[in-house]
């Protein structure tokens, strides 16, 4: 009985979390322009979606900026994490505290501070400013994902590689990077997700003509959001969901294999939610 109550409580919480998403999905099949009226089943929003210039171009901008920012932030952030891991004392503390700033600061403060910077430096608002802003707020998350993996690393691996004749750069690339790969991938994916979902910082750093999905949605919200956007987010959501299920099923299968005797190091997937030492 207690178990039943406990389970029902969790199901209620999930109902609360998923209700709006379900509503969005249902209305993407609704043959009526206005929300709240059910006009029968249709797929026409899915067809119109691909003919809608505004939505398709903001989807393109979102993905382009998300991917570019994530890759650049991952490169800078990983190198930074390695550097931070090897520095000591006040220098390390200072760098870490500044790194936490964009994480702890309210988004809107980061947003306006970057906007002021770009105006001050007379950079034209558009793709470039958006990209710079996204890289900036992504880097700390990459650093924070990579650092724990560096702490787990055997200190002597790098020295051993050097003793065996590796150049420092070679040792970094061939020994260190493969060891911390799970952290790097977590950082990359985290950065990409944050970029795609970001609204506040993009809103303040974008210029005329460049609009991400979030900005398009925000500007549409006043007159009412087109059902085509519901269709788009249904597709994106389903895509992510399927991806997550595939990764999880594969992982469960691998774990079962491992348990049944085959050895091999346990793979840590970025899709696997491991909170705690994040």
């Amino acid at each position: 009985m207690v178990r039943f109550l406990k389970r029902s409580y969790i199901y209620l919480v999930f109902a609360f979390l998923y209700m709006p998403i379900a509503v969005l999905m249902v209305y993407s099949f609704n043959d009526s322009r206005s929300r709240g009226v059910w006009g029968g089943f249709t797929l026409r929003w899915y067809v119109e979606l691909f003919q809608d210039r505004t939505i398709m171009s903001s989807l393109y901008s979102t993905l382009f900026i998300g991917a570019t920012a994530a890759v650049i932030a991952t490169i800078i952030g990983t190198l930074a994490a390695i550097g931070i891991h090897n520095s000591k004392g006040i220098q390390k503390k200072l760098i870490m505290n500044v790194t936490y700033l964009p994480v702890l600061n309210p988004e809107i403060v980061t947003a306006i501070s970057l906007m002021i910077l770009f105006v001050f430096a007379k950079v034209r608002f558009g793709y470039l400013t958006l990209l710079l802003a996204h890289i900036t707020f992504n880097i700390p998350y990459v650093i924070l994902s990579v650092l724990p993996k560096l702490r787990q690393l055997n200190k002597h691996l790098y020295e051993a590689a050097l003793d065996l004749g590796c150049t420092p750069a070679g040792a970094l690339w061939k020994v260190i990077v493969p060891e911390i790969m799970p952290g790097i991938i977590t950082g990359l994916l985290l950065a990409f997700t944050l970029s795609i979902d970001d609204f506040v910082i993009s809103f303040f750093t974008t210029g005329s003509g460049v609009s991400t999905l979030s900005i398009t949605i925000y500007s549409m919200a006043r007159q009412g959001i087109k059902p085509t956007l519901n269709a788009l987010s249904t597709i994106m959501f389903t895509f992510v969901l399927v991806l997550l299920i595939i990764v999880n099923v594969r992982q469960a299968r691998e774990e079962r294999k491992e348990r049944s005797g085959k050895n091999g190091s346990k793979k840590i997937s970025p899709y696997r939610t491991e909170f705690g030492d994040a």
Partner: peptide, 30 residues
Amino acid sequence: AFSRKNVLLLLFVVPMWMNFLLRTYAWLTL
């Protein structure tokens, strides 16, 4: 009470994959 905890955790994270503005906007409809 639950055996597959990873799935539960994932279910808490998955809604965040839907655009934050759209999710909030959906409450208007509700």
